[in-house]
Design a binder for these strands. Structure first.
Lengths: 340, 340
DNA sequence: CTGAAAGCGCTTACAG
DNA sequence: CTGAAAGCGCTTACAG
């Protein structure tokens, strides 16, 4: 293994000079710099990360704490994860991915052993048990998902209140007056998926203001249950002309449900979902949807986290950034069918 | 920050004694052990990972190198990733997730800086450029995906040859004599997705042996292209009674294609896919399929990698483990319809 | 059964 | 502009 000592010897200078030549933290004569660079190249020297971390108290690694609820839509998580790892690399950091069931234990262990410089928490719940551990940690943290209490952390999320409002506004403007909303399973809500009721409440309230009847249901997260659910909801409200989906599995199941009922979108029923464009394309989902902005959220969280790590000012003002919803139009929204 | 020195002081012993008491690498009197344990608990001591790595040359971190092809099905990767991170934790390791475009550079950088004890390579191609870098690295590696040249590494993959044979055998036994196979996009094959042609060739050969006509096509990986592809393939072979899918997007798109053509499975056409049961449930895929065994493969790779890391014998015999295919029956396979 | 000391490979004040 | 030395927090032969 080639160390900084080998480089120093080959270049005929001291180890500290090699270190400074590499970091640029003090002025080095052109001649010495050249000799060091040659030696580094010839020997193929790369600094030892552990030794550097020990000396500087910086690991240049970020901890990414994922969290998978039993009934939630796991594959969607990958888009957040990739946004995080990509932006981290652009900023010179690597990413330690932690998927343990026991997020509190994992966060504490990794924080105490000084394995990372900061944390990104995914899928943050209303009352997220990981937040206590994060506040106790010496490393800063950025959240994806809006908890009830946001002090001491930077928070990034889709604006689910605006999303619920937007969905209802759009259908109302086209003339719809009765709408069904299919949310995530009850399980998800109970485990802290506040975004579910945040969207649902905002939609409900806006519907009331506009004189729209909105029926809110939780749907299952997998087949065949979700197919049966959708049929039951549609049976219960034959006069509804709009369908809002805050549930990816429902979106995936809906095409075959509509077909079996002889319904077409948007002629018979208008549909708005909430998932990413990537998802729509890959899974052949033909419905207009509010983009979940997973990639953007992952990148923004890392950006802010690194700024805080490197900014020196650990208590600089904290931010709560809610991304405004945007509907990707795939042609599943139209005026309701004429009454016979 | 509390160090081993603080613990030693509090317990009234030397630092080496604390270290040995914690590691159990030499016998410690019950009395001393108790004092050390108390001090550790009182002070909340956790060893510094960087310092330990420097002293032992072991990081207890595994590098996981993902690789996303432009036209491949990204969400499926998450299942492999979770298999890896979970098994790693069970064995006492954390996972550094690397998703860089430049896998060779990433592997070299991480290996040279000694950030990990070993590597898991995901989605390994026939001629994978990362393999050269891995063989040059001092850390061992386990692959998920079978490359052309396997020496010096442990390899895990689904047995795609047996998968192709099994798919054809199953349909042939029921009486099918003309079958369409929809593979991954050409792009994926060109970028080294050998499993695509390995399955296709095996299916083709078995079909020839059995007197079955098999038409092999590459399909697109997203809508609306894949829907149009499927329609074109079915148009071209109206007498085909079986459909084999080695393409997740095709599986997701097929239900609506069949419906628009007025076809039902298995009455009009038998279908066998290749994806995991989780996927089938979440995305409402109603077709029988060969399980892609992502979770198992991830776990097996980690298991073997850790055995090699800890076994001391870096050149112990290398393994190539091909998991036999199993069909999850969802009722989409039946004898072909009677001829009129 | 326990301790003093060397060493892992870096970085960074301290001197000159 | 450069070097000798201390120190980061551990582990592990070496002594006793």
């Amino acid at each position: 293994m080639v160390t900084i000592g080998d480089v120093a010897q080959a270049a005929g200078v001291s180890r500290s000079t090699v270190s400074y030549a590499l970091s640029g933290k003090r002025t080095i004569s052109a001649e010495v710099r050249k000799k060091v660079e040659e030696a580094v190249r010839d020997l193929g020297y790369t600094p030892n990360a552990g030794a550097r971390a020990l000396a500087t108290s910086q690991t240049r690694v970020l901890g990414l704490l994922a969290r998978f609820l039993p009934d939630e839509f796991a594959p969607a998580m990958l888009q957040y994860i990739l946004g995080v790892t990509e932006r981290a690399r652009e900023l010179g950091y690597d990413t330690l991915l932690v998927s343990e069931e026991d997020g509190v234990g994992a966060l504490t262990r990794i924080s105490d052993s000084r394995m990372v410089d900061g944390f990104v928490l995914l899928n943050v719940a209303e009352h997220d048990s990981r937040l206590g551990a994060l506040r106790r940690a010496k490393q800063p943290g950025a959240l994806i998902g809006l908890p009830g209490e946001t002090d001491g952390v930077d928070v990034f999320d889709l604006d689910f209140v605006a999303t619920g409002q937007l969905m209802v506004d759009r259908l109302h403007a086209l003339g719809h007056r009765e709408v069904v909303l299919v949310s995530q399973p009850q399980h998800v809500v109970e485990r802290g998926g506040a975004y579910v009721w945040r969207l649902a409440n905002a939609a409900q309230e806006r519907a009331r203001e506009l004189g729209v009847t909105l029926h809110n249901y939780s749907g299952s997260s997998s087949q065949p249950a979700i197919g049966a659910d959708l049929n039951a909801f549609l049976d219960a409200h034959p006069s509804a002309t709009g369908l809002l989906l805050n549930n990816e599995a429902a979106a995936a199941a809906l095409p075959s449900v509509l077909q079996s009922r002889g319904l077409r979108s948007p002629d018979d029923i208008s549909v708005i979902g909430r998932y990413s464009d990537d998802f729509a394309r890959t899974f052949s989902l033909p419905f207009s949807s509010v983009d979940s902005a997973a990639d953007v959220l992952g990148r923004r969280a890392v950006q802010q986290l690194v700024a805080r790590i490197e900014g020196g000012d650990a208590d600089a003002p904290f931010t709560v950034e809610l991304i405004p919803p945007v509907i990707d139009d795939r042609g599943s929204i139209a005026p309701p069918p004429a009454r016979h």
